[in-house]
C-alpha cells in the first residue's frame, strides 16, 4: 500500500505542483486580506446618543419624558437613521375619559428651523377613540373618532425645545393595553 502510494507520487506528484503554488499564493494573500479587513475605521453612527438613542447636538434630538402619567408610557425609541426615529407608546387599560401625558421632548440643536413630520400607526384602538399630539396646548389630531389618521408636522425653532404630550380621548372603557407607534423624520 505504502509503496503504491510512493509510486503514485513519483508518477503523478508533479501534477500537484500548480496546486501547491496556488496554496502558497493563498497563504500569502489570506493574511494580507485579513490584516486589511482588521483596519479599524471611524464609526458611521454617532456615539453621542443615550441608551434610548438620543442626543446629537448637531441636529434634532429626541429625549423621553422623565415621568409618564395616566398610564400613557413611552415604551421605546428606535433611531432608524441619523434623522429618523420610531417611538412606541402604550396606554394601560382604562375607563372612558380623557388621558394626557408628556411623552417626549424635541430639541433643535441647529441654527435653522426644522420640520418633523409625524406618521402614526395604531394597534387595538376602539372606534370613537381620538388621539392627539399636544404642543403648547395646541392639539394635532393623529387619530380621529371615525378611524381616520392624520400626519401632522412639528416645527421646531433653532436652539429651542418642544415638549410633546399625547392626549387619548376614550369614549368607552378599555380592558386591555393599547398602543401606537410614531414615526418621526427630521427634515
Amino acid at each position: 500500500m505504502k509503496s503504491s502510494l510512493i509510486r503514485f507520487y513519483d508518477r503523478f506528484g508533479h501534477f500537484l505542483d500548480p496546486f501547491l503554488v496556488l496554496a502558497l499564493v493563498a497563504l500569502l494573500f489570506i493574511p494580507a486580506v485579513t490584516v486589511l479587513n482588521l483596519t479599524p475605521r471611524r464609526s458611521a453612527v454617532s456615539t453621542e446618543r443615550t441608551v434610548l438613542g438620543l442626543a446629537d447636538q448637531s441636529s434634532v434630538s429626541v429625549t423621553p419624558a422623565t415621568e409618564n402619567e395616566n398610564g400613557i408610557t413611552l415604551e421605546k425609541i428606535t433611531q432608524r437613521s441619523d434623522t429618523a426615529y420610531t417611538l412606541y407608546v402604550t396606554h394601560n387599560p382604562h375607563i372612558a375619559g380623557v388621558y394626557k401625558s408628556e411623552v417626549f421632548t424635541l430639541f433643535n440643536g441647529t441654527d435653522e428651523e426644522k420640520r418633523v413630520p409625524v406618521t402614526a400607526t395604531f394597534e387595538g384602538y376602539a372606534s370613537g377613540t381620538t388621539i392627539a399630539i399636544v404642543i403648547n396646548n395646541v392639539k394635532f389630531i393623529v387619530l380621529g373618532p371615525d378611524g381616520s389618521t392624520y400626519p401632522p408636522t412639528i416645527y421646531i425653532q433653532p436652539q429651542k425645545t418642544t415638549v410633546v404630550s399625547i392626549e387619548v380621548d376614550s369614549p368607552t372603557d378599555v380592558n386591555y393595553t393599547t398602543g401606537f407607534s410614531l414615526d418621526l423624520t427630521v427634515e
Binding site: H14, L20, A23
Partner: peptide
Amino acid sequence: MSKLLRKILSAAVFPAALM
C-alpha cells in the same frame, strides 16, 4: 511534488498565522 515548494509551503503557515 516539488520538494522546494513543499518546504516553502510548510514554512509559510506559521508566519501567515503570526501576521
